Computed example of a mutant assay.
Amino acid sequence: MSDEDGYAGTATLVVDGMEMAVQVDLRGHFQPIDGYYHWYGRISASGELTAAVGGRKKACTVAVEDRSVDGELSDPDPWGRYRITGTSTPPFSVPTSLEEVEAATA
């Protein structure tokens, strides 16, 4: 069993007021040392995103379904995929009870 939660699929990304549909692969975990939930992942290569960000670190908002949270984009990898990170509530659903965890791993 993994200690990580996650989501892979379509999301809406807003950078500098510009909204775009992107494909994301996100993961996250609770860090007991600092008491926060940390989420992170990659956004599939997108010419629209590259034009908006230009390889720079940028604040953003990412939404998956009805969950919208602030995050930060960092420089792209060699394949043009931007890394995205955030702390606290993630843009994806996280199990909050043992029953939900067991159902998700069944």
Score class of each variant (00 low, 15 high):
P76A: 15
S93P: 00
F30H: 10
H38R: 09
I33Y: 02
L73E: 02
G17M: 02
V64G: 02
A52W: 07
L26Y: 11
R81F: 14
T12F: 07
G9E: 01
E100A: 15
T89Y: 07
S46P: 04
Y40K: 08
G80L: 07
T50L: 09
F30S: 04
P95M: 04
G71Y: 06
C60T: 10
L98Q: 11
W39H: 00
V53E: 06
S2K: 07
A11R: 08
M18Y: 03
V24L: 01
A11W: 09
I84F: 05
S97E: 03
P95F: 00
T89A: 13
Q31P: 00
G54A: 03
E65K: 14
V22Y: 01
T50P: 00
D66C: 01
M1P: 00
G6K: 08
P95N: 06
W79H: 10
Y37H: 02
D25P: 00
R83G: 04
C60Y: 03
V64E: 01
E102D: 07
A103M: 10
D70A: 14
P90S: 09
E4K: 14
S88Y: 14
G35D: 08
A8P: 03
L13H: 07
G54R: 01
F30D: 06
A106V: 04
D16N: 12
F92E: 12
G41K: 02
D75I: 09
D34W: 12
A104N: 09
E99K: 12
